[in-house]
């Protein structure tokens, strides 16, 4: 599976990381090398092997349905850029989204 510039550009968009046009070629090279290296795995026979789903052998713990968290809007907004107060609460803000 060979990686091209268009694919890297698409992946970068999916990951929301701006890659300058001029950096694409270098990026293609780097990623191709790494992918070629990990493709060694093709040599491993894995027919009938279930993929590992967890490194621990316990079942999913479940908690009770009680309200035990939240209610600290100031802490939630304390690290935010451009928070907006509103009544007893407040909002995060981002550039306007057009739907």
């Amino acid at each position: 599976m060979s990686l091209d510039k268009a694919t890297v550009a698409r992946i970068a968009t999916l990951a929301r990381i701006r890659v300058a046009e001029g950096d694409l070629d270098r990026m293609v090279g780097e990623l191709r090398n790494i992918l070629a290296w990990v493709e060694q795995l093709d040599a491993v026979e894995t027919a009938g092997v279930d993929p590992m789903t967890s490194a621990v052998e316990v079942t999913l713990p479940q908690r009770d349905d009680t309200v035990s968290d939240g209610g600290y809007v100031d802490s939630i907004l304390a690290n935010a850029r451009e928070p907006v107060k509103s009544g007893a609460g407040g909002f995060f803000s981002v550039p306007k989204v057009v739907e």
């Binding site: 990990v38 795995l41 894995t46 279930d50 993929p51 590992m52 789903t53 490194a55």
Partner: peptide, 15 residues
């Protein structure tokens, strides 16, 4: 399937 799932299968073999 080719990468992630394959890797999780090999991981099972390593374990």
């Amino acid at each position: 399937d080719a990468y992630y799932l394959k890797a999780q299968r090999v991981r099972a073999l390593i374990a």
